[in-house]
Design a protein around this nucleic acid. Structure first.
Lengths: 249, 249
DNA sequence: GTAGAAGTTGACGCCGCGTCAACGTCAAGC
DNA sequence: GCTTGACGTTGACGCGGCGTCAACTTCTAC
């Protein structure tokens, strides 16, 4: 695959100026540059561009976008991708809500009926529909987790991954025994899991069960756990369900 | 209803800075200003603000927004509102498409399958999902109609308004006689009305009856017509109903 | 050999506010 | 009445994400 700048522009709908800009700020460099200075893009760049454009649609600042798409850890990348997918659905729902609000307003106006001012602005407030946008995209979620990851160093990273393997392995053994998700052993492992995931991000009472469900629903996550034994992901999910009740937020 | 700037900010989710900015550029002035310089907003301002925010969500430049919400012709306003509602739904669908594209990409990646580059960017190109965005918000729909209005000149504007008065007056007389909406006289007047409204926007088979219904349902519109005589708005609506069957679209 | 299309690198500009500074005004508590 | 703190006011500057020239190079076609 070899596309020049105008081909990429046509394909993706961005302008060539934008692509040059992304190159200038180091966000998306071409795969290679011809001896005449012309930019050429390959598959990897297209994938990266897609990710960039998704984040742009979500109004994430380009600097933050850079830190997100630069994550070299595939596990983190996958987790983020899924998160972004959910964010897109949230935007979809927000526009649906906005449309409804407008329709309500118009029909009420037509009938000369008054309207609660609250109802008139349902769906407008970003902070209500996209909770903790700043925390999600800003320092905490991404730069924070990357920083934490690097801070571990090669040795710490190995240890961190090993801890995860240990947790998953132990859970798989308990799953084989049909253990009780609310039992002491499972809960202890869930606690370790919560600590493990907290390196990147500390999920609260609402978010942690969501993560648990994702472990089951998403095939990629599921595979990560179930390779240790069938039912591991589900046991983790159910254990999290119980464990999360004791969390703040 | 009397809200100060912070109350409006809380209610709508915009910042007080934004409200001051809108005041500064003449986009949204407060209903009145206290002797201490504090801004106070009323119902009309909230309605205008909602319209502004909708357009902002649709990424319409504020200058264009100003020209839209400043249209003093209620018929045009109503038509635009409906159009904006549809635009919101279009955005909703676009985000749905984006989410789907991302999901497809992720799952294909997981399975190691290749992907057509076209599919990878489905939904991204604004120009594809928001057809004639520029024409819609830019020159044609709004500036266009405003331009048409200005193009008339003071003399032409007077004539245009006079024509409307003439139509409404004639309709009122027919309404007093309990005329048949599908009758020749009414239909001739409706034809003139259609031509009249077409200066701003040419409603088709579906839109024109909608406009007709609004003349009856919306008290502002209704008053405009019924001041010539009771039943005028309804006669116009019914006449439009018939007339519209012969329209294209 | 030359014209035209499309690329390149600066450089400046613009919109929609965020943000900071300096100051005025109000209600509550002493 | 005086202070204090919350919240308002008016400038002014800054910035992100490109659009938009300008000046130039390079490739392709005839």
């Amino acid at each position: 695959m070899d596309l020049d700048i105008s081909a990429v522009a046509r394909l993706t709908g961005v302008t060539s100026r934008t692509l040059r800009h992304y190159d200038a700020i180091g966000l998306l460099s071409p795969a290679w540059t011809g001896h005449d200075g012309r930019r050429h893009y390959g598959d990897a760049e297209l994938l990266r561009l897609q990710h960039i454009l998704v984040l742009r649609e979500l109004e994430v600042p380009l600097e933050t976008v850079a830190s997100i798409v630069d994550t070299d850890d595939p596990a983190l990348t996958a987790a983020l991708m899924r998160d972004h997918h959910i964010a897109l659905l949230t935007r979809r729902d927000r526009f649906a809500a906005l449309a409804e609000t407008v329709e309500r307003t118009v029909t009420r106006l037509e009938k000369g009926l008054p309207m609660s001012t609250d109802d008139m602005f349902e769906g407008f407030d970003h902070s209500r529909y996209e909770p903790e946008a700043r925390e999600r995209w800003g320092d905490l979620a991404v730069e924070g987790s990357n920083a934490a990851w690097k801070w571990l160093g090669a040795e710490g990273q190995r240890a961190h991954l090993a801890e995860h393997e240990a947790i998953a392995g132990a859970l798989a053994r308990l799953a084989a025994e049909d253990a009780d998700p609310s039992g002491e052993e499972v809960q202890a492992l869930v606690a370790r899991h919560h600590a493990w995931v907290s390196l990147f991000w500390t999920p609260g009472r609402d978010a942690y069960p969501g993560l648990g469900r994702m472990y089951v629903d998403d095939p990629r996550f599921r595979a990560t756990y179930d390779k240790h034994g069938d039912g591991t992901a589900e046991l983790l999910r159910d254990g999290i369900e119980v464990f999360a009740r004791g969390l703040p937020d």
